[in-house]
Design a binder for these strands. Structure first.
Length: 351
DNA sequence: AAGACGGGGTA
DNA sequence: TACCCAGTCTT
């Protein structure tokens, strides 16, 4: 592949054949670019689209976001996953509001230093909003470059990341960095797709090493294997006087900053009956008076790296025991304002 | 360098 | 089910 022709072919394709439309495409407002890029980290465009629109509607500029309450912003992020993105989003909005008078930094290194902004997002903001010559390297770029240049260096290791970043930077059209970055990502997403790429109709077919050697389906190469585990959760839905016990998740675990019911995690599948539940309540929480309303069937949720299997046990407490007094007991109207993991919302939305 | 972090689409 | 998605942060 002739490197000097690569960007020209891509830009030509972008101008004449690329019909991909997105609400943030072509805009220059760094706040909106930043927001869209954070939402799209490890997230499909279709999935992030609605979230972007509701964020822009509610927080049209960075000061609106900076002044929002955590609870409200997390509720808007609910369901999108990778919730630390939301935490960092708020942190950065407030940082820019306080330290830079709400003005987004226009320098690559300053942008990269922001929390939640890595090399990809910094290059995207720098090129789209400020026309700076930084090449984006995301999953699309890894795939397109690995195939076109027939490079089987693993993209998920340090060497491969450096190699493809350097190659991307070399190929970047320095006069149109934003346009070029947009082009290669759209190309990767719509033509040079992970599965069933549209090679027969590809403008790079003649120059593509992978196509010419029949290795399209073997590139890019990844070497890391995902380890999966299964976890067993028992959520106790404690009710007392129309209030429910709700806690906020903290610590180094999934769903940080989201809310949940009183959780007991076990190493094996829990086998609950009214009797065993009452035993556990008595021995662990010193609850002597309780009515076990019902025990849900096992509900399963597949995450990327773990399978969650959860049971929900509804318990009516005639009085709040000392062991649970300091926790938050909330009315339904308050609960509706909080963000919950999908598996809990799934349970709550059941008839 | 390796692991952790969600939820959904596709084959 | 396995893999991937406009990646980043922590250990």
């Amino acid at each position: 592949m002739d490197k000097s022709k690569f960007s020209a072919i891509l830009l030509h394709w972008h101008q004449h054949e690329n019909t991909r439309v997105m609400p943030w495409k072509g805009i220059k407002d760094p706040y909106k670019i930043w927001l869209s890029e954070v939402i799209l980290q490890q997230t499909r465009v279709d999935q992030g689209w609605k979230y972007y629109e509701s964020f822009i509607e509610k927080y049209p500029d960075i000061l609106h976001l900076a002044n929002a309450e955590d609870k409200e912003v997390f509720k808007l992020w609910e369901g999108l996953g990778y919730y630390n993105r939301c935490k960092n989003l708020l942190h950065t909005a407030r940082f820019i509001a306080e330290n830079n008078n709400g003005k987004f930094p226009a320098d690559y290194d300053e942008i990269l230093a922001l929390k939640g902004v890595g090399p990809y997002t910094a290059a995207a903001i720098a090129s789209f909003a400020f026309r700076l010559p930084y090449a984006v390297v995301d999953g699309n770029v890894f795939r397109v470059l690995a195939r076109v240049f027939g490079n089987s260096t693993p993209v998920d290791a340090t060497e491969g990341k450096a190699l493809f970043t350097s190659l991307a930077q070399e190929l970047l059209d320095k006069k149109n960095p934003g346009l070029y970055n947009q082009a290669i990502m759209d190309f990767g997403a719509t033509v040079c797709k992970p599965a069933l790429p549209l090679c027969s109709n590809c403008v790079l077919q003649k120059q593509c090493t992978a196509f010419n050697t029949g290795t399209v389906n073997h590139l890019p190469v990844k070497e890391k294997v995902l380890k999966k585990k299964t976890r067993w959760f028992s959520f106790f839905v404690f009710r007392h006087n129309n209030k429910t016990l709700i806690s906020k998740r903290t610590g180094n675990d999934i769903w940080q900053n989201l809310h949940e019911f009183y959780l007991v995690e076990t190493d094996e599948k829990p086998v609950w009956s009214t009797e065993t539940v009452l035993d556990v309540l008595s021995s662990q929480l010193n609850i002597k008076k309780a009515e076990v309303k019902d025990i849900s069937p096992l509900i399963s949720q597949q995450l990327t790296h773990q399978t969650i299997k959860a049971v929900f046990v509804r318990v009516i407490l005639p009085e709040i025991p000392a062991s649970l007094k300091k926790l938050d007991w909330l009315k339904d109207a308050e609960i509706e304002k909080l963000a919950f993991p999908r598996i809990i919302n799934q349970y709550l939305s059941q008839p």
